[in-house]
Amino acid sequence: MSEHILSVHDLDVNEGQIPREDWFESSDTLQHLRKNKRFPTIWCSGCGIGVVMGSLIRAIESLGLENNNVALVAGIGCTARMPVYMDYNTLHTTHGRALAFATGLKIARPDMKIIAIMGDGDAMAIGGNHFIHAARRNIGITALVVNNSIYGMTGGQQSPTTPLDMRATTAPYGNIEPPFPICDLASAAGATYVARSTVYHPLELDKYLAQAISNDGFSLVEAVSYCHTTYGRINKLGSAADMMRVLKENSISKSAYDKLSDEEREFNTKTVRGVLHTKKRPEYTKVYGTLVDRVHEEAIKPRNYGGH
């Protein structure tokens, strides 16, 4: 190791070689963070949620969206702590209800780009009912679900996406419940854009998030991640870097997947990455807009009883 490098870095680590405000300026992505928010983030060292945050910002940047016009709505859980760090309109709601809050916000402000940010438990367990109905309505919201197959914030309980036989603090003898395939569920419920990738492939997430946000109707992006602190420790899956590596080895692109034989496809256990479903369907608030116009066109005088 060349001497000059070590001497430069012998500084006390807390002081850091770069003043804090300069760090925010050192990349376009960092400029989307909230300068008045305390960093580093709340997540465990190595957690994939921070990677997804980077992807989301780059996706928003790539679309050239106005920060004033972007709203992030989150439920409760590790993933739901993401919005507070970013310089958009951010709403941190109650567990499982992000999409219901976001539905009201989208109806009030159909012009805004709204992204609901949830973990797998937040979206699929307590939030499942709102998830399928938001998809059914095809309301213009992007659901970004970071799926690490566990409830991380509360310490490692099984979630609706925990794989069979894997352990959790509430499945000490192995999970006996078959997990939800989130993307299939969204597609069946009516989502008009569904894509999946992993935190090992953030550039794919950038692309899919940009497409999802541009999609008029209800979009789902499933970002497969990991939780080495609870799920990884309980199931002895190693460090964050180890679990990151498994995401690479244990996933396959959709194009490669499509080339598999039927039999291979049936026994495939790898996570399929890609745009899995798209559909052309009118977006909910636009349809309601035409309804309001129609009511007006039929010249039904608004009944203001008092004003004759």
């Binding site: 807390n14 850091g16 760090w23 465990c44 190595g46 870097a241």
Partner: peptide, 25 residues
């Protein structure tokens, strides 16, 4: 450029850098 103040030492960058530009302090 590395901002040590925010880094939590997870080693992902070091372990995955294809050309071994980085090493843990």
């Amino acid at each position: 450029k590395i901002f040590a103040t925010w880094c939590k030492g997870c080693t992902i960058c070091v372990e995955f850098c294809p050309t071994h530009v980085l090493a843990m302090h």
